[in-house]
Design a protein around this nucleic acid. Sequence first.
DNA 1: GACGTCGTTGAACACGTGTGCAACCCTTGG
DNA 2: CCAAGGGTTGCACACGTGTTCAACGACGTC
Lengths: 217, 217
Amino acid sequence: MRSVEGISDLTTRARIRDAAIRCVARDGVNVSLRTIASECGVSASLIVHHFGSRAGLREHCDAYVLDSIRELKSSVLEPGSGVAAMLAQIEDVGHYAPLVGYLIRSLQARGPASRAFLDHLVATTAGYLAKGTESGVVSPSRDPEARARALVEFSTGALLLHVPGPNEPLDLDALPTWLRSYTDRLMPPVLELYTEPLLTDSTMLAAYLAAREAAPS
Amino acid sequence: MRSVEGISDLTTRARIRDAAIRCVARDGVNVSLRTIASECGVSASLIVHHFGSRAGLREHCDAYVLDSIRELKSSVLEPGSGVAAMLAQIEDVGHYAPLVGYLIRSLQARGPASRAFLDHLVATTAGYLAKGTESGVVSPSRDPEARARALVEFSTGALLLHVPGPNEPLDLDALPTWLRSYTDRLMPPVLELYTEPLLTDSTMLAAYLAAREAAPS
DNA sequence: GACGTCGTTGAACACGTGTGCAACCCTTGG
DNA sequence: CCAAGGGTTGCACACGTGTTCAACGACGTC
């Protein structure tokens, strides 16, 4: 586990990076350089000295968070025991709260990191769905990739609608319990939606395809 | 149909409001007062003279857009002929592009208007689902309100992931074709998802409920 | 015809932003 | 012991922001 707390025996570069991640998660991507600077007790000039510019810091943090989350996900999901593992992961999200918050903010700002993260999620989800299809618990799809993408965009996008706005602060300490209550509220209808078909027959699908045929793009 | 083009025989207040809506839709909610001012050929001071402050203009536009969309929706959806009506509505979204763009930006910024609009969408969707349940094309739900909300948040949130970022411009002229290609890409997997159940049995649902029972909040 | 009111403008202010620059301290190496 | 270089700071600049204020013109009213 990569430490985010930083017991200050870290490089100054690393301390600035961690402070930036925390500030972005808390205050949004528009957080000022001076706020980040005061968060880790340095001057604003030092940040641009180390990272060249604000954009440089942003890119560095993007890459770092993406790497951290990727290795975090892979280590947690390796046992792959299904729902229990996912729930356990939600439980101790507190340890990685700054990383999760940074990702949320990145998604919110639609930065370059957001697309990479979404692609990663889609690939992971597609893998899970494929495995589920093999074992028979997930129904096959005409276009597994598109289905995985739709599922990821659904859950991720819905999350964005509940997170504080781009300029409102996000309480990192309250994030685990907040996330839990959010999933508690959303899970029942979603699982129902994914277990029992919403539409009782394929009339709509047929109608849509017919309309598309009649009036091609 | 409420004119948004404004043939300039409108009140100055109205012209400023329309320009503001257009600018917000195009450049995001952080568009500057001076940009809006130059858009309709007045000075920045005049805007604050008419609306008190930037926040006043925002509230006024929020209320106006919400009202317009509401009456627009009700007039279009009154015949209620189902999918065909929805598709037709997508077709001529070009006429209301500024309104739609403003709503997207409002959703993106999670302003006060966004919650009101979402609630409105949820209510409308719940009504449709109830009607569909009666006629048998939509399966009943244990919690229709929660299901409607989940569906609305899914589609709305997914849309937010594809729209330009909060600071990137949105081409209002290209919006109709963009929206159409977006639905074309998303519709097939989504309709499949809603027609054939993703999960082949209720194992997951049961497991989730069991886990919630074992470790209550 | 003078007065006052309303719509409108340009300049100015205070503030916050990212960035550049000159100087400092401290350590390291000759 | 002196020089050098990297880490670090404060100051200042240019810029963009929302907002304020004094002034100006046109219009209607007494």
